[in-house]
Every structure is written in structure tokens, then in C-alpha cells.
Design a protein around this nucleic acid. Structure first.
Lengths: 206, 206
DNA sequence: GTCTATAAAGCGATAGAC
DNA sequence: GTCTATCGCTTTATAGAC
């Protein structure tokens, strides 16, 4: 018997640790979260934690990377036969639902706060999140432009960024500062419609 | 001699403490900042600190309130005889310069992170910052609408929120996450022009 | 590989001399 | 009012039993 418990599932254990770490980081932020809290909620001990991650920093990095992988394909799911306005409305609602969800907002705030100390974390989140989202939306808008439904004047990325700005404008900051209660689906619908309407006034074919 | 050193300048000392506290809070965030660090950089002692502010929380609140007072009248300075587009461009540049400055961004990130624990802080910042700004801009836009320069369809606040969203869209998140270098005046001009152009396409008189 | 126990350092806050 | 010294507590990180 060389190894009594060889390793039932080291990867699963690692995932479980990241699940708990995500909870605690989102609840308390990076600085306030303690390895003791994470270990206690895990049911394990701090020794175990340090076995999987060399330090609190390494644990935090691993958590950010995993979240970025997750949210990559949440917004742009499938695009079937719809009118341009219907498609824009559906994407707008899906985007707002995701971006104003409590977990996404909290994640953003925590990483923004920590990105001063560790810019790498912020870069990872920005490039796999907002940046990629704007580029994918730009590609979709370019298609509508080519089909004659929009007038983008040759700058689909600019129009994409402006649509995203219109959608987030009043609610994003308010929610990031916890100045208003969580967003309801009704509010999402209303803001999506409002944003798309202004977008079409600016970029729709006259 | 009832009071030997009656009080040379208690208020000035309080201001000096808040100056140092602002530095440390912006550099390290709320949780990581320590009263010892603040006292040391002040040149005084922790005892002095606790003489002026009952707790770390009270010190933080006082700092937030002071910052909110400061930035109230920075953006909407004076509005003289300009064309509507010139006025919008000037306000847009002034707004972007303020909102994308390193100190404003860092302040926003720190308070957003802390507002989960203490929503009152976030509420104070939101209501005296973005909310008031949108309302003042709405009042200005309503004037342009009444003068026949814009077509706001009876919702000046909605148009104001959308203009602010257009201006901040691509750069705000990137800077909050420290994913791009500090904004240059050239970038501010370019984004302001881009945002105002889209805004006028949507709300300008046809 | 996982646990208990503990070391070493730092925290917010207080007490008391001056 | 301001300082020095220190209390009580919590933190990260490690050592050693199993």
C-alpha cells in the first residue's frame, strides 16, 4: 500500500474550493476575506487550502480566470430569424439581465477594487468580458448594416459601444454603488426598449 | 487662563487628517487601510485620530461626504452664449475629464467595493454624484428642447442619462478595471465628439 | 493528503502620563 | 489635545500528528 488514498478526485476538490472561495470573495471582497473563513466553510482546514493554492493571491487569480471562462458565451446565444428590432431587443434584454445580475455586479466591483494592486486581474476580466462582448455585438450590427437595416457609417464597433452605453447608463452605476435595490425583469425590459429606441433613432435607416 | 491653547485650528487639523485619509483610502481601499498607517503618515498618533473621529467607519464616512461636496459644481460651471452643439461638447469634455480622472475612478471603485457592507456610503456618492449630475444635465437639455434645438419627446432626464451613457461607454469600464492606461486629453476630446454626434443623431432637430 | 495546534505579525481601539 | 504603550482580537502561514 504505497498510497492509501491515492486521489479520489483532486480536480473536483479544487473546484469545490473555488466554489467556496467565490462565495466568500463576493461576500466580503478580497482584503476582508480570510483563508480561515474559506477553510471553515469548505469543511476542511487551512492546511488543505495551502496545499491547493500557494497563497491567497493565487487562489484569487484562479477564481477570476474561472469566472471569465464561464461568462464568455452567456449573452450571445443564438440568433435566428427575427426583424432587426426584435433581435436588438432580445440581445439588449439578455445583455442587461446578465450585466445587472447581482453576482456579475459584485464580481465587477471586487475586481475593480483589486485591479489597482493587481492590474492583471482587471485586464483578464475586461478583455474576456466587455471587450469581447462589444466586438461580437459589432459583428452582428455590421451584418444589419450590410443588409440595409442600419446606417453605421463604417464604424460598427463605435455603434456597438454606444448601444452598450445607452443600455447601461442610468442603472449600472446605481447598482454598483448599491444605491438602488436589485433590478427587476420589468426594469430590464423597460431599459432595453428605451436604449434600443434611442439607438435606432441614431443609427436606424431613415 | 482657562484654555492655554484654546484651539489654534481644530478644523484645519481635521482637514489635514481627511487629506491623509483620502490618500490612504484611495491607495489601499477601505479594508486594507489601517488607522496606524494614516496616523503615521499624518505625523501624529492613533490617539489623535480617535480624538477627531470615533472610529474607522466614521472617518471613512467623513471622507466620502467631503469628496461629494467637492465634485458637486466641478462639471456644470457656467453656460454662456454658445451654439447648442458647442455647449454640449464643452459639457461633455468637462464631464469626461472629471469622471475619467484617476482620483474619481479610484474613489468610485473603493466605495463600490465597500457599499456592499455599508450601503449608506454608496447612496451618498450616487445621489450627490451621478444622480445630481444627470438631473442638472437634464435641466440644461430641457432648455435646448424648449428653444427648439432638440427633440426630447418630453423626457429630458432619459435623454440626459443616454448622453452620459454614450460618453462613458467604452472607456469607463476599461479604466475601472485598470485594463488600459490613463486617459489622455486627446481621447477625451475624441470620445466627447463621438458621443455628442450620436446624441444629436438621435435627439437633434431633423 | 488532511487535520489540530500554534507561531508571528498586524489590526482597531483604549488607558494614562504629560 | 497629544503622545506612548499596550490590550484583546484576528489574520496569514507553518509544524507536526495521523
Amino acid at each position: 500500500m504505497l498510497k492509501a488514498k491515492p486521489r479520489l478526485d483532486r480536480d473536483a476538490r479544487r473546484e469545490a474550493i473555488l466554489d467556496v472561495a467565490q462565495e466568500v470573495f463576493l461576500e466580503e471582497g478580497f482584503a476582508a476575506a480570510s483563508m480561515s473563513t474559506i477553510a471553515a466553510r469548505l469543511g476542511g482546514s487551512k492546511g488543505t487550502l495551502y496545499n491547493y493554492f500557494a497563497s491567497k493571491d493565487e487562489l484569487f487569480k484562479a477564481y477570476v480566470e474561472r469566472r471569465c471562462l464561464w461568462q464568455q458565451d452567456e449573452v450571445f446565444a443564438v440568433i435566428s430569424g427575427e426583424t432587426p428590432e426584435e433581435a436588438l431587443l432580445r440581445i439588449a434584454r439578455s445583455f442587461l439581465t446578465h450585466v445587472l445580475s447581482e453576482i456579475t455586479l459584485r464580481n465587477f466591483a471586487v475586481i475593480a477594487a483589486e485591479s489597482e494592486r493587481t492590474p492583471e486581474l482587471g485586464r483578464i476580466l475586461y478583455e474576456t468580458g466587455p471587450k469581447q462582448g462589444a466586438e461580437r455585438l459589432a459583428a452582428f450590427l455590421a451584418g444589419l448594416d450590410a443588409a440595409g437595416a442600419l446606417e453605421l457609417d463604417g464604424d460598427p464597433l463605435g455603434a456597438s459601444q454606444h448601444l452598450l452605453g445607452l443600455l447601461q447608463s442610468p442603472l449600472m452605476k446605481a447598482r454598483l454603488l448599491n444605491a438602488i435595490p436589485p433590478i427587476t425583469p420589468t426594469q430590464v425590459d423597460s431599459e432595453a426598449a428605451r436604449g434600443v429606441r434611442t439607438f435606432l433613432r441614431a443609427f436606424g435607416r431613415r
